[in-house]
Amino acid sequence: MHRRLIGVLSAAVVALGAFVPAASAAPAPRAACPDPGPGLLRCLTTYTSLRALADGPAGWGADDLAAAYGLPSDAGPDTLVGISIAYDAPNLEADLAAYRAQYGLPPCTTANGCFRKVNQQGAPAPLPAASFGWAMESTLDVSMVSAACPSCRILVVEGNTPEFADLAETEDTAVRLGASVVSNSYGARESGAPLAFASHYQHPGVTVVASSGDAGFTAASYPAVLPTTVAVGGTTLARDPSSARGWAESAWQYGGSGCSAYIAKPSWQKDTHCGKRTVADIASAAEDIAIHYTDAGGWLPANGTSASAPYVAGLIARSGHAGATQPSSLYAKASSFTDITAGTNDPTGGGKKCGNDYLCVAGPGYDAPTGVGVPSGLTGF
């Protein structure tokens, strides 16, 4: 039976099959993908334990997220959502089946035409080499698209490496094969080198979505920093029976935000303390997300704006406005989102890193960690 385990960074975590005593310090989440160094993109998933949970999922599931964001009961259209990713995830379809079965979502398989996995040229074989961390990322991606849009079809395009050129090609391939929304759960520090590939993240009639990063307030992350990309930050979600919504939400302490050093200020972005493009545009839950990952033994909680980006991509697809939804349209409909006014993504200084400014502290109206807010149904898309 589904069970909520509160706080990946709290005292209640699962390790070695037993609860850690309250007096013990909770382990910090570890990165699924180590820092690859310059010239490469990094997947943005973190996790706490590799121990499978015998009693089922730990963390927020598809039903929790649907309740928190007021999703409609109808499944929506069968929009094709593309996932741009590096390396192969050999058990991806099976893990997706386990996730969807757990939450009562319809099957999404190769056999029924809902699921498709190809290499960066768009062929079913040969697929790239497998990678533990990137495969965890892929699993989180397809699970979050499924949670947001149970009726959507999913296309996973696997790059040979996390080099800028390879992942740019996966983007183009996803669009060529019919995706009208493409999700990117990876990032690299903004610099001149990755910006040379910016054109691959701009396609007419396609919405491109990217994670804002998992390093808190720092240099802006590529490709989220591109003005053609919906940059998605992260939040921490909690139940709040005392509120009308029934949920409380704050900026996730590790969610990325930043001020571009290269990209001109878009006309639709009006914040005043960053003279160029500010990241992020919107946000959703990024901490303590339940996934089923065979290579880790089963169910485990994962974290990252690599959860929030594909979730938002799925919501855009479900809205029926894929392609039409662009960063500018989110700002035009800012009142349709739930404003997040608490929390900071300065995990060490509580906001000191940005001078307690909106660039790293959530507050009324636009702020960089959570953008214009979190989804409230599908009206904002």
Rank of each mutant, 00 (worst) to 15 (best):
A62T: 03
K117M: 11
G178V: 14
D357N: 13
P128G: 07
A58C: 06
G298M: 05
A219G: 05
L16M: 11
A302E: 01
T278R: 15
A97E: 04
C152T: 10
P310T: 07
F337A: 15
A130Q: 09
I6L: 08
G122V: 14
F164Q: 09
S335H: 14
S257N: 12
A168L: 03
L44D: 07
L300P: 00
A147Q: 04
T325L: 11
L226R: 06
S284C: 10
A193C: 13
D166S: 08
G61N: 02
L80E: 00
S183P: 09
T110E: 14
A313Y: 08
L105G: 06
L41D: 03
V175M: 09
G377P: 04
S191H: 09
Y87I: 01
G258C: 10
E190S: 12
S199L: 06
P369R: 03
Y103S: 00
L53E: 05
P327H: 12
A22N: 09
G17L: 03
R245L: 15
A98I: 01
S250K: 15
L9I: 11
A224S: 10
P29W: 01
M136I: 08
T272P: 10
A210R: 14
N119W: 06
I83T: 07
D88T: 00
T235H: 04
N160C: 08
P327C: 14
A261T: 08
A296C: 08
S242P: 13
L315D: 00
A18I: 11
S376D: 07
